[in-house]
Structures are given as C-alpha cells and as structure tokens.
C-alpha cells in the first residue's frame, strides 16, 4: 500500500526509545495545567437485575494524559468495551464519573466532537457506499468536509473502493473505513477498540504505523483497546490491564516490562551463588545458569555479592519479560479444563 499514511517505517522505534523520548521531551507550560485527556473516577457499570445482574466494570479509576498512546488490555469480557462505551456516552456509568479533558461526558456532544472512535468493530449502513457513509457521519457530527473525506479515504487505502456499497466490503475493509470514520472530525482523542480485527498481517502493520503517526505527527491522544499484546507492546506508551472489570495493573510499558525482567547468570559454583542470591530474589538453578526474577537495576548488586564471595561470573543476560507474560500473570485465573472428546 503506497501513497498513504501506512507506508511510513516506524518499526525502529522500540518501547525504550519511546519511553526515553517521552521522558526527555520538555512539557510546554500550558501542558502542565492541562487536564488529562481521559479521567475515570471509581467508575462501575452494572447490567441487568436480580439473577441476571452482571457487574461489567468495578470501581475503575484511570488517567490518560494528552498526547499518549495508551493501551487498554484485558481478556474477552473483562469490561473493555463497556468502559469505552461509557467514555463515548453510549452507556452511563452506574456509579463514578467519566471526564474527558476535565469535563463530564454525559449529554455533552460538543465535548464528544473532540473524540473519534471505532467501537466494537466498524458498523455502517450497508445499503450505502463507503463514501456516502462517511458523508452522513460527517454531517451528523457537523464536520462535513468533502476534501477531508477524500484525504482520509486515501490515508486508509480505501480511495479506490469508496464508491462500492458497504455490503460488499470485507471485515478488513470495514475496519479501514471505521478508522477513517473515527478521524472525520479531526479529533484530539481517538478511541480504537480492537482496530486490527479482521485485518491481514500487512493490514495490522499498517494500522500500527498509522496509530503511531497519529500520535507523533498529529499530536493526538490514542486510547487503544486490544487483546493483541504484541500490537500494544509495539505502539503504546502506557498500558492498563483490566480483568473482571477491575484494574489490575497500569504504567509505562517499558517500566512494567523491566520490572518483570529475568536476569540469567552463568556462574561457578552455582550452588554457592544460589545460596547468596536466594534470600533476596527468587532464583531457579539450571546447571551453571541461575535465573533470577529481578529488575535490571539489581544487576550490579547481584554481581557485587557474587564477586565478593569469590563466585565466578561468566555471563549476565538481562531477559526482558514480554507483555504477554505480564498480562498472563496479571489476569491469571484457573482456566476450566477442556472437556474430553467423546470416545468414538
């Protein structure tokens, strides 16, 4: 796909680089007093009554600063979409408040015109063309600009298919159109709920670049809900993990991952080294190798202890934890055993 947003190569950016950029960039004075783009205070949402009562979101508090790419992770049914629906005033919280840019969301379409969203898969009027759908959405949002529609269609790679009826679109094409729809009003905040659903690997990569571009070149705040952990790890500055409606972990991606590092040490004698390190860290021995669960900053102390006790240190390898491991740990639940296949 050439000639669109998606073509730019940002793959060189890793999480550390992004964190460093983030920390090194001085905040403008106005930003210091800027309210967060998203602020959830003790938000809960309950559906149904009596025996059908489901608590989808439980006392969720969260802050997303302007200009960030924020990942919102959780297994299916964790409450991600309900949270997003509350941010978009599609449903009302049972308790708590949802603020965008410091202002309450309910009955505030003017505020929500600063927000673009792709919620729970793209849905369009399938009896209309892609272009007509965008026109209608833009008119509803008081932001109709034919030139912008053309530009967005080109950016998402749909310019040549915009005059076909949506009923003939694939899921991926609808997702691309959904991304264009989310940006019709040139929003400050873009909320994307599983934006890569139905896309092929190349499409997924395109969307990743697209999202980074939106944040870095256009200064937009991105709230990205996904269960594709690699996607979040590659594009997000911060993440929050939600499970059973509760927030279980939040922080900068790089910090969370480094906090979960595994330090692998090749030492001799291993048993003496194990005795020296075990009181302080969780260590597993594997021949001459010790695997220590620690943070990167602990490495000098470890080496110092070992050397002081005349343990030989041959190699130190810091193995970054993946977001997947972090996610699995944070959302660990007893998985139901799959039923045995019936005997033939």
């Amino acid at each position: 796909m050439t000639g669109n947003y998606f073509g730019e190569n940002l793959s060189g950016l890793n999480s550390y680089g992004k964190l460093l950029n983030y920390l090194m960039t001085p905040l403008p004075s106005s930003a210091m007093s800027q309210p967060p783009a998203i602020q959830l205070d003790n938000v809960s949402k309950t559906f149904g009554r009596g025996r059908k009562r489901v608590e989808a979101v439980r006392q969720l508090s969260l802050e997303v600063s302007a200009g960030q790419v924020f990942g919102f992770l959780g297994p299916n049914g964790a409450g991600k979409s309900s949270t997003i629906r509350m941010m978009m005033d599609l449903i009302r919280p049972s308790t708590g408040t949802v603020l965008l840019y410091g202002r309450p969301v309910p009955n505030n379409p003017a505020l929500l015109r600063r927000v673009g969203a792709l919620v729970e898969g793209a849905a369009f009027y399938d009896f209309l063309t892609g272009r007509k759908n965008l026109e209608i959405l833009a008119r509803t949002g008081d932001c109709y600009d034919p030139a912008r529609i053309e530009s967005l269609l080109a950016q998402v790679g749909m310019a040549d298919r915009a005059d076909r009826l949506v009923q003939g679109y694939s899921t991926g094409m609808k997702q691309r159109l959904g991304l264009a729809a989310a940006l019709l009003n040139d929003p400050d905040l873009v909320i994307l709920d599983e934006p890569t659903n139905g896309l092929d690997p190349a499409g997924i990569q395109d969307v990743r670049h697209f999202i980074r571009n939106l944040a870095e070149k256009q200064g937009k705040t991105i709230f990205l809900s996904s269960h594709l952990l690699s996607e979040v790890e590659q594009v997000c500055d911060q993440v929050a993990i939600i499970h059973n409606g509760r927030l279980v972990q939040t922080g900068h991606v790089a910090e969370l991952l480094s906090a979960q590092a595994i330090i692998r040490l090749e030492v001799a004698p291993a048993d003496r080294a194990l005795g020296l390190l075990q009181p302080r860290w969780e260590v597993v021995a594997n021949g001459r190798w010790l695997e220590v669960q620690a943070v990167r900053e602990d490495v000098p102390e470890m080496v110092q202890r070992l050397v002081a006790a005349e343990v030989q240190v041959f190699q130190v390898v810091v193995q970054q934890q993946s977001l997947e491991a972090l996610f699995m740990a944070a959302t660990a639940v007893v998985q139901p055993q799959p039923e045995e296949a019936p005997h033939a």
Binding site: M88, P109, L112, Y125, L137, T140, G141
Partner: peptide, 17 residues
C-alpha cells in the same frame, strides 16, 4: 440492527437525532 447508533449518537444531542 445495523449497529450504527454508536457512530452517530456521541456526536449529536440524542433529542436532535
């Protein structure tokens, strides 16, 4: 049925829609 309210409801007052 088409799931399209979610696209338009946030951007306009519901009474107007």
């Amino acid at each position: 049925q088409w799931g399209t309210w979610k696209n338009i409801v946030p951007r306009q007052s519901r009474a107007r829609l």
